[in-house]
Design a protein around this nucleic acid. Structure first.
Length: 429
DNA sequence: CTATAACTCTCAA
DNA sequence: CTAACGTTGAGAGTTATAG
């Protein structure tokens, strides 16, 4: 078993780059992509970063500034991003069969046993091929643990070390690494977030190097195993392995903010039903059953002038199920218990939990024989129709037809890569 | 008391 | 015109509860 070598490949400004890719007029133009409901800025092109517009800002707060700088905004187009993401993964898979898709724009590759004489050159060829085949730019961080590979990737992106978007820690001397790590904020480390960073600061640990050289036992005492593992990983002792098989979900959530505030129970019922159907579809997709359903509704947590209300209720089902109708009945009952009139609701969501494979089904003593099989085939047919003809082709009537609660998507780009209908528009310009 | 379930907090993209 | 601020999933630790 050779010492592991990890590469972390991360697409630059992924969402913004996807948008630019299909509209050459956007070359050199600052572009932002907004979260669902056009809420906050979640991706920025290089030009926007240069302007100093921060990540995570509510769009309405920065809109004027953005207009003045000629920033073009897009609503999240997940159909496009997911499709481009798959294409990137397909290219990366050519470089190593041991690949973990970590997020929509990041993958870990196990490079152990691959061209040990020049890992950086291998990284460059990855970057070149993704650029050539897809027009997207990636950075590659290479190191002996996943945490270090993430850090190396950070260095590549910020041009702190390495060249041309590639940073290989395994080729650096101990002294080089020391001085590099001394210059990087501890908060940049994977797993050191908003809460932990200030606590580490208070202990006098401000740099990556300081954390690497800290006492792991003491950190475990004070915090948890997670922090102890981070220290080991920073020292090049891998504690995390490549997770190449994605396990079944243990919980499935569907929740969304409304485009406009919602006041009436009927709209909430329709929204909750849609959420259940979306979650149940995912549940069936992994051939599982859910044993519990949770429904949450809330008013805006931001507006101090609005009366606040939030409620979240869970029920255990008498018999685990993946039937949209059964799950909906349970959810609507919970919603009825949660709903209070007179509030301006901002968001509703559902969670399916206590999830198990369908093959472990335990029929209740009182369930009618055969019913379940009929229901399953009905759901199968429904999924089949929706996968063939598009999401939402066949729906429960309880989802309604009004959709006044649907999210805002005022700046949506076409489904460039997944819908032929967009082709004429592309050619026309 | 222990084993486990339920809940809370944190993190990440 | 005004008001307007994402979603999903996991893991660890803590607390409550059952036996």
């Amino acid at each position: 078993m050779p010492a592991p070598i990890f590469a972390l490949v991360d697409c630059n400004n992924f969402y913004a780059s996807c948008e630019k890719l299909f509209d050459p007029r956007l070359a050199g133009v600052p572009v932002v992509v907004l979260s669902n409901n056009d809420g906050v800025v979640v991706a920025r092109s290089a030009e926007v970063k240069a302007l100093g517009l921060p990540m995570g800002q509510p769009w309405f707060k920065v809109r004027d500034l953005a207009k003045r700088h000629g920033i073009v905004a897009f609503s999240s187009n997940y159909t496009l991003y997911a499709d481009m993401s798959n294409r990137v993964v397909n290219v990366l898979a050519q470089f190593s069969p041991d690949l973990e898709v970590y997020s929509i724009d990041e993958s870990f590759l196990d490079l152990s046993g691959h061209v040990p004489e020049s890992l950086a050159a291998y990284g460059r060829s990855i970057r070149e091929r993704v650029r050539q085949w897809l027009g997207l730019t990636v950075c590659v961080g290479i190191a002996s643990s996943k945490t270090l590979a993430k850090l190396a990737n950070h260095c590549a992106k910020k041009n702190l070390a390495g060249t041309g978007g590639i940073c290989d820690f395994t080729a650096m001397s101990a002294a080089e690494l020391d001085s590099l790590m001394a210059r990087i904020e501890v908060g940049e480390i994977w797993g050191v977030g908003r809460q932990l960073a200030p606590k580490l600061h208070a202990m006098g640990i401000r740099s990556v190097k300081a954390l690497r050289d800290a006492d792991p036992g003491q950190l475990r005492q004070r915090f948890s195993v997670v922090q102890e593992r981070i220290v080991q990983e920073l020292r090049g002792i891998p504690c995390l392995s490549l997770e190449d098989v994605t396990p079944d979900r243990q919980q499935i959530i569907s929740s969304r903010s409304f485009g406009e505030r919602v006041h009436d129970l009927q709209s909430l019922q329709e929204a909750v039903t849609s959420h259940i159907c979306r979650a149940a579809e995912k549940l069936r997709n992994q051939d599982s059953l859910a044993g519990a359903v949770t429904v949450s509704i809330r008013t805006s947590p931001f507006n101090p002038n609005e009366p606040r209300y939030q409620k979240s209720l869970t029920v255990a089902l008498p018999e685990a199920s993946a039937d949209s109708r059964i799950l909906t009945r349970a959810a609507l009952k919970l919603l009825g218990q949660s709903y209070r009139q007179g509030y301006a609701y901002q968001k509703a969501g559902v969670m399916l939990s206590d999830i198990r494979p369908r093959r472990l089904r335990q029929p209740s003593l009182f369930s009618a024989i055969g019913n379940d099989e009929d229901n399953r085939r009905l759901m199968q047919t429904l999924d089949h129709i929706n996968s063939r003809w598009g999401r939402g082709t066949l729906r429960l009537a309880a989802e309604g037809t009004d959709f006044g609660w649907r999210m805002k998507r005022g700046h949506l780009s076409p489904a460039y890569t997944t819908n032929w209908e967009t082709l004429p528009r592309l050619i026309a310009r």
